[in-house]
């Protein structure tokens, strides 16, 4: 597989801190952008393991799963994200996740 320059750069940055949720999220997004759902989900999961409050990751992981036809998993991700959004009192994220949940249900 030909690696895109941005992915190679992000992987290099990840070496400095393999637990940086920002870089992990960036890598997940880049893989999702290229249609590589499996890799994208892998990095979203690593990002959420490093920081469960990284709310964008729930939303975009669910979107990636939805596009891959994995609706059940997408729904579970959205629900988990909604739980953390409520805990973080992030009304905007909670609303976005709730809208996506309605769309998936």
């Amino acid at each position: 597989m030909v690696r895109m320059p941005s992915i190679a750069q992000l992987e290099k940055l990840l070496q400095a801190d393999p637990q940086d949720p920002f870089v992990l999220y960036g890598l997940a997004q880049e893989h999702a952008k290229r249609g590589d759902t499996a890799q994208a989900v892998l990095f979203y999961d690593r990002c959420l393991a490093a920081d469960p409050m990284y709310l964008y990751a729930y939303y975009h992981k669910a979107r990636a799963l939805q596009q891959a036809g994995r609706t059940e998993e997408a729904l579970a991700t959205v629900k988990a994200g909604g739980h953390f959004a409520t805990r973080a009192q992030d009304a905007h994220a909670a609303r976005e996740l709730s809208t996506l949940q309605d769309e998936l249900a």
Binding site: P5, S6, Q9, L10, K12, L13, A16, D17, D20, F22, V23, G26, Q29, E30
Partner: peptide, 18 residues
């Protein structure tokens, strides 16, 4: 260090070379 890494990764995602 974290700030550096985050700005660098943000720029990488926007397609800027290293």
């Amino acid at each position: 260090t974290t700030k550096w890494r985050r700005v660098m990764s943000g720029l990488a995602r926007r397609g800027f070379d290293e």
